[in-house]
Design a protein around this nucleic acid. Structure first.
Lengths: 197, 197
DNA sequence: CATAGGTTAGTGAATATTCACACTACAAAG
DNA sequence: CTTTGTAGTGTGAATATTCACTAACCTATG
């Protein structure tokens, strides 16, 4: 356990293992025992790397938040059309979760929401960040006359985000069996078809 | 504990109390201790009414499933337009949850999904039931030329259901502070505006 | 007097966390 | 080159707490 904010390799391993357990066995399955077992070391060894179990979850979510923000912000380019930006952002999301399904918990985070105040805060920030990015694209599309102005951006956000979340839930329920980037691109097209003029 | 399938008054009380705890403290907060305390009797008294804790959850979800199916099916009338049926169904849902916010857990059921196979099955049935009802209305609207045919019913379902779920999540996150039937009717109108021709 | 529904006082299992201890790599000091 | 200090990382055993659930007993009421 270092003093810096940097995440050590071992910490990253623990985070990834925790994510894996989280999607396989849910929040109830994530115990010091299961994490230790998956790491092939004793329970007490966990405490060499994290102060508490909660800290692992906080680190996991913070990491995702950081990644997501960087990644998605880079996808938005002013010279592109709003539809292109819209596609780019969601494609990036679906590809990311395809490669890192253990982070899907953060999207389907209902269970995590009740864990602690700190965790709840991070999850809310994550949602807030995504909504802001999306709002930006929707506004662009309205100004450029690509998207419908029948519905306010504010009202459009929960529809789009809700659809995205639901798609993720379906994917999880299927046991991550199908290709989310393919199914995802369908829903992107459908959403665009609905909001485009 | 009676042998019949009927739910006794005391059982109903326990179910309602459990739902209340579930939305206030999440699945982790639902323990024999908290239920007993809320009921103002001892933990062991619970077992006079239910065989196990899981049985309480099963009863809660089964009850909701029964109620919902009856209620929503009654809302759909062939002589009405698809848009009217659409509105009626969702208005009924929002009003129901306004009166019974402790059942919202079943909608935001991620946490419950990992509890047990039986619980997972009931939740999936609940979702399936609602999707079927909704599909019926969407098909009606397509035939009567009210709704867009640009998007298949199958693809429209997750968008609508996802929006509904997300609205419920927002409501829960707000601590059930605003009037869900008012906010709900807004989202109904918005969704209709999107899918109507 | 049998039963429904309550009580108190347990049970064993699981949980997160702590502690004393051991090993290793490596850099500084002699 | 060897000694030695130290930071990092592991272990096993023990901890208090919480959990779902049970057994034995009490009592009002139909």
């Amino acid at each position: 356990m270092t003093i810096t904010n940097e995440i050590s390799n071992r910490q990253l391993e623990i985070i990834e293992v925790s994510g894996k357990i989280l999607i396989e066995k849910g929040i109830k399955g994530l115990t010091t025992k299961t994490v230790a077992s998956e790491m092939n070391f004793s329970e007490s060894a966990i405490y060499r790397h994290f102060k508490s179990k909660e800290e692992i979850l906080v680190a996991l979510l913070s990491l995702l938040k950081q990644n997501m923000n960087k990644r998605l912000t880079a996808e938005i380019k002013p010279q592109n059309t709003a539809a292109e930006n819209f596609k780019a952002v969601f494609t990036s999301q679906f590809n990311y979760f395809k490669k890192n399904p253990h982070f899907v918990v953060a999207v389907l985070s209902d269970g995590l929401l009740d864990e602690s105040e700190e965790i709840k805060t991070i999850i809310l920030q994550l949602m807030q960040n995504k909504m802001q990015l999306l709002a930006q694209i929707l506004e662009q599309g309205k100004i450029s006359n690509e998207f419908t102005t029948k519905i306010s951006t504010e009202d459009l956000l929960p529809i789009i985000l809700g659809s995205f979340r639901f798609q993720m839930l379906k994917w999880k329920l299927s046991g991550f069996q199908y290709d989310i980037s393919i199914e995802g691109s369908k829903i992107i097209d459908n959403l665009l078809a609905l909001i485009q003029k």
